[in-house]
Design a protein around this nucleic acid. Structure first.
Lengths: 332, 332
DNA sequence: ACCTAACTTTGAAACGATTCAATCTAGAAT
DNA sequence: ATTCTAGATTGAATCGTTTCAAAGTTAGGT
């Protein structure tokens, strides 16, 4: 079926070692031979068997990117940044989607371990640091994306979520809003928790203001809509007059529930601020005020950190933190 | 560094063959031995080397999904469907993003060939049928997604884009619109071409109506916005009073250019209909009327077809065509 | 013509699993 | 006690590369 290096060697009248050299170290082979071998390769349709190569060479050229919500444009933008950087370095990035399932997160990590990928870029969903430590000992480095390492063991690329939360809350406070609602969850997700904490800290400085938490089971459009429907039914007196959504997907869901039904006006009755500044924020039913994260740049940076660790496993983990940025549109 | 099956065998006091059997055919091994070997595996932290396994067994458990725009929610929904189905079958799906680059499309196909993946799910960007035929001969089957095989050589899962175009155009015509604009491109992309042709055929039946084509270089939000800006500048007399966008991303871009600036009203001055019915369509600045495709179901179906071909390479290619559905919201 | 140094080429030994024919149990049946 | 059988275990061969010491080749200098 598929021809091997041995077939090529036979066809070209050289030894297998020479064919391998043509493939990997062409400079060691005379140009005459290179040409002859190349010709045989083409004629036989030879394709290197990566499994065999990897087995012997012990080194893979692929990097895995594991995210918990591939449908979130923030992650696709990040993936794009990582991919572009990887292409430049000669790596290939394969993507895997955890779909907010710890089980799947683990089974993908198992897969990557068996595949001996060169490294892992991960935006963790569950508690995986221990697992990643084991992988590191095993020779597979990882870089955390959009989340910092609790024990400084891993390099990470993140955004200062606490600062982002503060910026968001302050913006709402400056607008004169006092009854603020935070919508997002689960609160165990560090990104969500930090944004919330940032908002809470901002509230400290404004004695009159209150913050109510509307916890959701995921940060999706659907969950946002569900929360929005509940908020819509509240009495005007106790209903928040401003909402801070844990991300833009949730914010869009809120918009759907609050505005699309015509029951409330944004931002007049209720202001909404999102997080991530995804492409769709501009074109939301009410263009969304949001907190921008440099997604593509984050992906690119993460890949560079990973490459450094892959080349030198003893390298000290580095932590890169980007600052978020307020983007004011119409919703708040 | 990492222990091999031989180490495990030594540690457990059995032969390598037995360890392998514990891993792959536990029923052939006495439960006493299974337990002992498992214990050694845990103590040594043994992880099977997939490269070696694949080399010998000649069979991979991963399936590749190659799309040309991972940022398009239609594809992420499709990917999600495929992943769920794959998990059920014991396969793993890895995603790769072509980013609308023929070069990258080819280099990923090269990678998958070297990796001897079990099969490929592909939404092709460039002209790859020949390449895929070669892969098939090589033992790697593929299933086309969102596009039919020109020569019936591959199984495919698609939506009747021609019908979708007709439905969209008819809806606009029923609304009394006569100067219709089609926005999308490149026109070489079959999905785009078919949708356009479907619209043109619908127009045939309405003598008074005209169709103008605004070709874009990609079906993205940005390209849609650019096209929208041009349309905005046209004189009211020659400006279309209805637009059919090749997909929702383009439609959202159009909305940004036309509505967000306050210059035109949708649908009063100009109606807009999109395609795909992505999640964000509901929450667009003007909730988007669109043509729905059953994205997750398509992914799931594609995976099943692929599995069939993987099990029986001589199987006749099957073509599954779903029918699109009109979803009326406010933009048209 | 001979020596050297620099290139080329060779081929056997890994890499770590799976496979399978052959051997070895242990208990049942005679 | 002996034979039989089904199940359990073994270990060498194999998959297709890369690697690297050794052998072979070439050409330049004397």
């Amino acid at each position: 079926m598929s021809s091997s290096i041995k077939d090529v060697a036979l066809h070209a009248g050289v030894s297998v070692g020479t064919v391998s050299n043509v493939l990997n170290h062409p400079s060691r082979v005379s140009s005459k031979t290179v040409k002859r071998v190349q010709k045989s390769i083409n004629e036989l349709g030879f394709v290197r068997n990566d499994a065999a190569r990897q087995l012997r060479a012990g080194e893979s050229r692929t990097i895995a990117l594991l995210v918990f919500d591939a449908a979130n444009p923030f992650f696709t933008a990040l993936a794009r940044g990582a991919e572009d950087a990887a292409t430049d370095e000669g790596y290939s990035v394969i993507l895997a989607n955890t779909s907010e399932s710890q089980e799947r997160e683990h089974s993908y990590l198992d897969l990557f371990e068996e595949q001996r990928v060169r490294g892992i870029l991960i935006s963790p969903y569950g508690d995986v640091e221990e697992r990643l430590s084991a992988l590191k000992k095993f020779g597979i480095p990882s870089v955390l994306v959009d989340r910092v390492s609790e024990n400084q063991v891993f390099s990470s690329v993140s955004v200062d979520d606490h600062a982002g939360g503060t910026i968001a809350a302050n913006h709402l406070l400056n607008l004169g809003r006092t009854r603020i609602g935070f919508v997002g969850g689960p609160l165990e997700i560090p990104q969500v928790a930090d944004r919330l904490r940032g908002a809470q800290d901002a509230l400290q400085a404004s004695p009159g203001a209150t913050l109510t938490i509307f916890e959701t089971s995921a940060t999706t459009v659907l969950e946002g809509r569900t929360a929005g429907e509940k908020i819509r039914e509240m009495s005007p007196a106790e209903r928040p007059n401003a909402l801070f959504a844990a991300n833009d997907l949730v914010a869009i869901g809120l918009l759907q529930a609050l505005v699309a039904t015509g029951s409330l006006r944004v931002p007049d009755d209720i202001a909404i601020i999102g997080y991530d500044d995804i492409d769709f924020a501009t074109s939301a039913i009410v263009p969304l005020t949001s907190i921008r994260q440099p997604s593509a740049l984050m992906g690119e940076t993460a890949l560079k950190l990973l490459r450094e660790e892959a080349l030198d496993p003893s390298k000290k983990p580095r932590r890169v933190v980007f600052q978020p940025e307020l983007v004011i549109r119409e919703s708040a």
